[in-house]
Every structure is written in C-alpha cells, then in structure tokens.
C-alpha cells in the first residue's frame, strides 16, 4: 500500500433518467392536459375577479365557517386575483417540469481574473492618462481642484439648513403655566378635586389658550397629563413633592420619560403606572420612581392646587423637560 492518500473519486454526473412523459406519449398528453387545466383555472380566476369588481356590492357580508362574517366583495375579488396569478405560475412550472427537456447541462466557468497582460496594459494606460493630464506634476491644479470640489460638496448640506428650525427652548417649554386649569381630554371640562374618587384617574390637558379652538398634536405631545387620586396617606413623598399634590391628587406628565409613548396604564391595586411600549413601570406613590424597565427617569410631576373657584390648576410649569431624553437635557 502506498503512503499517498487516495481520495474517494467523483463518479461523475449520474446517468439521465427518463421521465414518464418522455417514454409514454399518453403521459405526455396527460401532462399537457394538466397544464391546460391549470391555465384554464387561472382564466376562471380572472372571470371571478372581474365579476366581483363589477357586480358584487361592497357591503355584502356572509358568514363563512371558521372565518366568521366576511365581506364578499373583498374576499372573492382577492380569491379571484390570487387564482388568476397562482394558476398561471403553477401551469408554467408544471409545463417546464413535465414537458420541457430536462437534460442537465454543464457550463464551464471562466476565470474572473483578467489575464496579466490586460492588467498591465490597464495600469499603463491609467498611468499614461494621469501623466498626460499632468496630475503628478501640476500640484497647484490638484490642490485647487481638491479645494473647490470639497467646498462645492458643502453646498447641498447647507441647502438642507431649512429642513427645520433650531431646537431653541422648545423641548423645555409646555403650555402649562402657573394657574393653568386642568381640563378633561377629550371634552375640555375643568375638574374639581371632589370630581375624582379615590382610585380614579383622569386624562387631562391644559385649558385652551384664548383664541384657540383645539389642541394641536404638537401641544398634546408635551402637555398631556394624567391625574390620579390616592389616599393622601398612601404617598411616600418628600415635603416638596407632597406639596405638589392636592388632597391625594397627583399629576404626572403622560409622555414617557423613555421614548415618549403615552403612559397611562394605572393599576389601582399596586399604584403602578406601566408604559405599554417598553414596559417601564413607575411607582405613583414615590413620585413615579422607575421600578422596572428601561426608563431611567421618573415621569415629570406637575405641581397642582385649586383656584378660587375650586378648579384644579397648575401651581407652576413643569420644572423639567417632559418626554424622552436629549443630549442637552440636563445642561
């Protein structure tokens, strides 16, 4: 036995096997009929599609077992369309598989790499071109061209300058001011403390400024506030934060301090607020301290009290920006 390692050899392409339709003309005819039936089904699908589009009313519903009450127009239009397309495809593939020649063909790969001589010629041509243009010698041209190209590239960026205004103070301000009434969302009705039982919540917005007839989405995105009433003794707050509550009513920004979803899943039993987007959980009794989830900050608390007429108002604007964090937030 020689010491050389002898590998198992490639037996080569296996012998071609004839199909039923290659041997038996009857099988070939059968295959042809099958293909024709498939194409025919497609045509029927188109007919169903046209019929549904033109003649089936869009408000006809019918009960279909396992599927429930379905809109006939939508369902038949779709099924017709699906059949029209699907059966063309199935027919074509069946045709290719049964009737078209299925001899495997061998093609040879060419080397992707260019021959050395071509490579060399390319390098020479490129070098000659560069030399003819004087790129190497005339450095003044090279440098000034580089400068102008670089500068001209700046202009599109500059042109995008009016995409938006600069942030300015916008992220730090809301519509809440000292004395702004809290009104229901929707409904815009002012709220008295006695309107809320213990365990009650209310979705609120600041009262509309004079001359405005509705809240813009930009305002809601910063102003939305959730009111919750607890028993005052349930709070676990420092003196300042306690003074921001009124008879057990506490107000938080509804805009999540994580990514800005509306946090309003209040669990009366646990006094927890949950954000449905990323499941940050806030403890209402401890000024919305984060007790679970990705948020790193409590929800901003709005200091509230009542005005002379007994309606709930803000004592002061929010003392921190509401909503998600940003780079300059704590600056």
């Amino acid at each position: 036995m020689s010491n050389e390692i002898e590998l198992i050899k490639d037996p080569g392409l296996p012998e071609h096997k004839l199909r039923q339709s290659d041997i038996d003309p009857k099988a070939a005819d059968r295959a042809e009929r099958q293909v024709a039936i498939l194409f025919g089904l497609s045509a029927l699908g188109t007919v169903l599609f046209i019929y549904s589009y033109l003649f089936i009313s869009t408000d006809l519903f019918v009960f279909i077992p396992l599927m429930g009450e379905q809109n006939v127009h939508q369902l038949l239009l779709g099924l017709g369309f699906a059949a029209a397309l699907l059966f063309i495809g199935l027919g074509a593939v069946h045709w290719a598989k049964t009737l078209m020649p299925d001899h495997e063909v061998i093609a040879y790969r060419h080397e992707l790499r260019s021959p050395d001589i071509d490579r060399e010629e390319f390098v020479t041509t490129a070098k000659e071109g560069a030399a003819a243009a004087g790129l190497g010698r005339r450095s003044l041209i090279k440098r000034s061209l580089g400068l102008s190209l670089g500068l001209v590239g700046l202009s599109p960026i500059l042109l995008l300058g009016d995409l938006g205004p600069l942030p300015g103070n916008a992220l730090r301000t809301t519509s809440w001011k000292a004395g702004t009434r809290l009104v229901t969302d929707p409904g815009d009705r002012p709220i008295r403390p006695e309107d809320l039982e213990v365990g009650a919540v209310a979705q609120t917005l600041p009262e509309l400024a004079p001359g405005k007839d509705h809240h813009s989405l930009n305002d809601i995105a910063k102003d939305a506030v959730l009111l919750i009433r607890l028993r005052p003794e349930e709070f676990n707050l420092d003196a300042e934060r306690l003074s921001w509550t009124y008879q057990g009513i506490i107000a938080f920004s509804k805009i999540c301090s994580h990514m800005g979803c509306a946090v309003a899943l209040y669990e009366q039993t646990t006094k927890h607020l949950l954000c449905p987007c990323h499941q940050s959980t806030f403890d209402v009794t401890r000024a919305a301290k984060v007790i679970f989830g990705p948020s790193a900050r409590p929800l901003p608390q709005l200091a509230i009290t009542v005005d002379a007429e007994g309606f709930l108002i803000a004592q002061a604007p929010f003392n921190e920006p509401v909503g998600p964090s940003f780079w300059e937030r704590s600056a």
Partner: peptide, 25 residues
C-alpha cells in the same frame, strides 16, 4: 431558455398569487 424562463417566470406568478391569497383571506 426554456426551462428557467418557465420556472422563474412561473414562480413570479406563484409568489404574487400566494401574496394575493394572503391579502384576500
């Protein structure tokens, strides 16, 4: 030509058909 024309072309209709089927039901 012809096998892949038919197979790949047919497969386009099949993918469209299946998508339409989902869209219908």
């Amino acid at each position: 030509m012809p096998i892949y024309m038919a197979k790949a072309g047919g497969f386009f209709f099949i993918v469209f058909g299946i998508t339409a089927l989902l869209g219908a039901v």
